[in-house]
């Protein structure tokens, strides 16, 4: 069999744990016939449908967008839906729940602490003019060049792979972690944002950016090219620049002039009449 087509049968070696029955986790093997294009998630679905309906994991979109099916597959944190069995080049697929997260059941990690950290860094636009933000009269100005400064970091799907790969997260429970820090930079780098100061206390705390020593594992495993390690170094660079410049107040981009009149483009067909009336 060639390397690209892979073996016709593989053994799924899955870590099982049911808190209601098991004192500790154990491994269970399932033999799965591999079909062309079969992903690890497809294999798990096949096992659940044909061999063991009690096998549990979390998944939704099956196309690497929702970030639900993060698992530790053959030694690396990966999305089960975005990795084909044949591409693992092994007749054995060892699947464990994501490390550094508590296990709820089988392959289901507890992401509660993860989302708490995410919220800690205030992952939203902060403006001094709250009234304008709540009742906008127009759009905030943003150039394409300004967009490129943060768009890469906005692709985060919150799958948690970066935290399970991070060696600092492995020992420091209070470390914010690559995901939250990357999101802090995503918003602080946004030209429309004025909340850099509001995020400072958490981001530059003793469990913030300076706990990262650029192991790079987070960026390596990120399935969306977010590159959290890069974001963290940019946060450090930003602090250095601001200290050099004397911590100047951050000014977000201005509000564009309100649209007073708009002409209809005759080439664009009109929307159909609403089917529901109030």
């Amino acid at each position: 069999m060639s390397q690209t087509s892979g073996p016709s049968e593989v053994v799924f070696d899955v870590l099982r744990y049911n808190p209601e029955k098991d004192a500790k986790p154990y491994r269970q093997e399932f033999t799965v016939a591999v079909t062309k294009g079969m992903t690890v998630l497809d294999g798990l679905v096949w096992i659940k449908e044909n061999l063991d309906p009690t096998l549990s994991w979390r998944s939704s979109c099956r196309m690497g967008v929702c970030g639900s099916c993060g698992m530790f597959i053959n030694g690396l944190p990966r999305l089960a839906c975005a990795n084909q069995v044949a591409h693992l080049h092994s007749d054995r697929v060892v699947i464990k729940p994501l490390p550094n997260f508590d296990i709820i059941k089988d392959l289901v990690p507890d992401l509660e602490a993860f989302f708490t950290r995410h919220r800690t860094v205030k992952p939203y636009l902060i403006r001094r003019a709250v009234e304008e933000q709540n009742q906008p009269t127009s759009e905030y100005f943003q150039s394409p060049q300004e967009l490129v400064q943060y768009i890469q970091f906005a692709y985060c799907i919150k799958c948690g792979l970066c935290l399970s790969a991070c060696p600092t997260v492995a020992t420091d429970d209070r470390y914010l972690g690559p995901q939250a820090l990357a999101q802090a930079w995503r918003y602080s780098a946004d030209a429309r944002d004025e909340g850099g100061k509001d995020r400072e206390q958490e981001v530059y705390s003793s469990h913030g950016v300076f706990r990262c020593h650029f192991a790079g594992a987070c960026s390596e495993v990120c399935p969306k090219g977010v590159d959290p390690a890069f974001a963290i170094q940019l946060l450090k660079q930003d602090l250095f620049k601001r200290k050099l410049s004397g911590c100047k107040e951050q000014h977000g981009s201005p509000v564009t002039a309100p649209i007073t009149e708009a002409k209809e483009n005759p080439k664009i067909p009109k929307a159909p009449a609403p089917t529901l009336t109030k």
């Binding site: 550094n100 296990i103 790079g216």
Partner: peptide, 27 residues
């Protein structure tokens, strides 16, 4: 949460390079 099984890698995750890149070993 008391039922959730702890799965922190601890020192092993701190020192073990696993299948990650050379920067992780450098760390």
């Amino acid at each position: 949460n008391k039922q959730h099984l702890k799965n922190k890698l601890g020192l092993l995750g701190w020192l073990g390079g696993g299948r990650y890149g050379m920067e992780r070993y450098a760390y």
